[in-house]
């Protein structure tokens, strides 16, 4: 009886860690699409740096998940050899980059979420999760700062940049809620999503006020990502991301 209970908990934990890993990996991949395309080389480097930070976090989570799963599963097989409906990332992270404003706002929403989430995970009972959160949170503080300053810069900038931020707000508004709607594995791990939501909203409100931007209205919450039901975009991302491992299995540098 107790053994069965333990294995259920373990499955929830694995799913939760994969959720964290997948969300960071997919957003990392989206950011990496800007590499070589940003209008200014310094910002190209900044966003690529953030992509690398996220990739590093994803690796830590995948490595931990792999040890929990066993069966010769590795960080690489988790990242490169699963199919769409096995991915648990937030829909927000797989949305197309669109323009710079949309890319920035996506990053800002996600980084603020990560910040309050990792703060909560610092008190988690699992030492490994605490260690990963503790290492990652410094990076995330910087991501919040970097993307937040861009939100203000564009929102309180020219008429054109202001309008583009407003478009981005409209574009992404239906993908915010998913972060705060607990999946089974989050409930099982006693993640307090309401607490995260409250702090997230306060930070976003303050930043939008400074950026003279309106808060999104008439929101409908798309969900599904956490349970493997994705938008059509994820398939295209995986096709590109997994191409090498699928075509040349076990290829190494």
């Amino acid at each position: 009886m107790s053994k069965q209970h333990a294995s259920v908990t373990n499955e929830h934990k694995i799913n939760y860690i994969l959720y964290l890993a997948d969300s960071t990996l997919i957003l990392s991949h989206r950011n990496s699409e800007w590499c070589g395309h940003a209008p200014i080389i310094e910002q190209d480097i900044a966003l690529t740096n953030i992509a690398l930070d996220l990739l590093g976090q994803a690796r830590s989570f995948y490595q931990y998940a792999a040890t929990l799963i066993g069966n010769n599963v590795t960080e690489d097989s988790l990242a490169y050899l699963r199919i769409e409906n096995e991915y648990k990332n937030l829909l927000l992270t797989e949305l197309p980059n669109d323009d710079w404003a949309n890319t920035i706002l996506k990053q800002f929403y996600f980084s603020v979420y990560q910040y309050y989430l990792y703060q909560q995970l610092l008190n988690n009972s699992d030492e490994q999760i605490v260690a990963i959160a503790n290492k990652a949170i410094k990076e995330v503080v910087y991501h919040v700062r970097w993307s937040g300053e861009w939100v203000v810069r564009l929102g309180d900038g020219t008429a054109e940049s202001h309008q583009r931020m407003k478009n981005a707000i409209e574009n992404l508004k239906n993908y915010i809620g998913e972060m705060f709607i607990a999946a089974d594995f989050e409930t099982a791990l006693q993640i307090d999503v309401n607490n995260i939501q409250q702090q997230w909203q306060e930070k976003v409100n303050a930043t939008f006020a400074e950026a003279t931007l309106p808060l999104p209205e008439n929101i409908f919450n798309h969900t599904g990502g956490k349970n493997g039901v994705h938008t059509e975009y994820l398939g295209y991302i995986l096709t590109e991301m997994q191409y090498l491992q699928r075509t040349y299995p076990n290829a190494v540098w």
Partner: peptide, 20 residues
């Protein structure tokens, strides 16, 4: 040297370009 829109951004760009 590098390009940046303002001083804050210059610090952040410098962080990313020169202190990685």
């Amino acid at each position: 040297s590098l390009h940046a829109a303002d001083a804050k951004m210059a610090i952040e760009n410098a962080r990313d370009v020169y202190t990685r």
